[in-house]
Simulated scan of single mutants.
Amino acid sequence: MLLSLRTAVLIASLQVLCTSLPAQAELTGERQIYLLDGQGVEQAIGSLTIAADGDRYGYSIDLDLSQFHDHFLSMKEMKCLQGPELWCYVPYPYANPRSFTTEDLRWLEHDLLFLFKESDTFGARLWNGIYYPLHLDEDGVIRGEARALDLNLLASPPDDPSTPPVGKFDIGDFKLESRWLPDIEIR
């Protein structure tokens, strides 16, 4: 009787664990990337295609460039969303394995870097970087809330190219209510 009780507890525990984690099939496929303003108004900026790769997920991002406008800022052409401020996409400049796990989405975060530019400023200021720390919800949606990042951190290649260079101590808080697109959702 004791053995069957242990077996039943083990089976019940496994069932709870399996239902609380998103299934691999739910993560794979194409998803849309949305930036949201403070009122929840969405701006679709492209798609994310996810494929299972062992215990990791490989991905590719396809930005919808029709949503972006060309701006020549600080001697560089940038793709920017126009609104109350410019929200410019900053491609990660170094090698990236383009993969993640359900617990570690840092490489994907590095591929979704932006900077903001207020309308009354001249040029791009790399210390106005935007970094979205991402997490995977129980419903399979990838979400993030904007944080401040000095993009000058990426001026030279990382010492270890197998590890994402931006860490939790590199990102800071700022007044989200004063930023145009404080949230990201990938669904």
Rank of each mutant, 00 (worst) to 15 (best):
K168S: 11
A148V: 00
E109T: 09
C88D: 08
E138I: 12
L153K: 13
R106L: 11
P161L: 08
P161T: 03
R56H: 15
A95Q: 13
V141T: 15
L112H: 08
H71E: 09
L126N: 00
T102I: 15
G58C: 00
H110W: 06
K168T: 08
L108Q: 00
R143Q: 11
V141K: 13
E118P: 01
E109K: 09
D120A: 07
L153F: 10
S119D: 13
F174A: 11
F174D: 10
Y89A: 04
K168Q: 13
T102A: 14
I61V: 12
S99D: 15
Y89K: 01
E77W: 15
L73K: 06
C80R: 07
L136W: 12
H69E: 14
S156Y: 04
L73E: 01
L108K: 06
Q67M: 13
D139L: 06
I171H: 03
S66V: 12
I50Y: 11
I142D: 00
A146H: 09
G58T: 11
A124Q: 08
I171F: 08
D104A: 00
K117M: 05
G54R: 12
T102H: 04
A146G: 11
G129T: 09
L73V: 08
W127M: 04
T102P: 07
D53V: 01
M75W: 12
N96V: 02
S60E: 13
H71F: 15
L112M: 13
T101D: 13
E109S: 14
Y132F: 15
G129K: 06
D62K: 08
K175T: 13
P164E: 07
S178F: 08
F116R: 03
Y94A: 03
L113C: 01
E145C: 13
T102F: 05
L86V: 03
M78A: 03
L81T: 09
L65G: 01
L65Y: 15
R56Y: 13
L151N: 02
D137M: 14
L73D: 04
D64C: 03
N152T: 14
G172C: 02
E177H: 10
L126R: 01
H71W: 06
I50P: 04
Q67T: 11
S99N: 15
H71T: 01
L154T: 10
K79D: 14
P165G: 00
F174I: 09
D120K: 05
L176N: 06
S60W: 10
